[in-house]
Design a protein around this nucleic acid. Sequence first.
DNA 1: ATGTCCACCTGCTGGC
DNA 2: TGCCAGCAGGTGGACA
Length: 280
Amino acid sequence: MPELPEVEITVRGLTPALLDRRIARVEVRRARMRRPFPSGLAERLTGARVTALGRRGKYGTISTDRGDSIVFHLGMSGRWRIDPVEIGRHDHLVLETAESGVLSLNDPRRFGFVDVTATDRLAAYAPFAAMGPEPLGDGFHAADLGERLRGRTGAVKAALLDQRVVAGLGNIYVCEALHMAGVEPATPAGVVPGAKLSLLVDSVRAVLNAAIAAGGSTIRDYARPDGELGYFARQWRVYGREGEACGCGGVVVRRAEGGRSTFLCPACQPPVGKARVRGR
DNA sequence: ATGTCCACCTGCTGGC
DNA sequence: TGCCAGCAGGTGGACA
């Protein structure tokens, strides 16, 4: 579930609960999610003070005054909870700060994971080093995207889901951005026209910013007991709207590709060949 | 190297 | 009401 906006909101929600606070107690209730927790996780954290929180793509980071950074990924169903009413079987890691706030990492499907790396080598952390530019940063622009897509024959949708091309996008926001840009998801990545690449860059930024704004508007809820970070109301134009009317008057359809659903409006997102018969 | 398929795990929903 | 198939926002390993 969590894509970049959800992780961003999670990190923002965790910040007031963790920043500059000392972790008084750590409870590892299940020693692994997708992968085993790093050894000595509880010892590394207990007594440490949190010095920074951050995000890279869909990953969140929590740095401490011991030079360690906890890296977490929420997978499909992960979420952090603040002062949960009760700790259940899906709460795998529980942190308690000296100020008595309780945070729990809850993940029913356990596709998420927790890792530790040295803060001064965070950029070299393998998944980060291989990752493409942050879509909301200066490094994400049409020229660079075109460079990364050049020669790729697979669907542009699959390429945008590839974290090495651009960081943080998942199925929902890729569907939304392709719709906003009017790009047919199955278009071979390498043949998307330059003008469409510019539109795509703008659309990716727009859908992500709108989602973060929507989450940000409810972030105060996270400061309350049992606040669940990572989920917030959102309105999508095509995702999950199979059979519904698109704003253009067309009808949203759903396709299964590679075992995943793609939502699009065929009227807004015609195949490239249909949109421009002979480009040159 | 790139593209495609599948496994990992649990919970929820819709159809019968 | 109950059961079961199908589906879910991600990643990464195996294979062509």
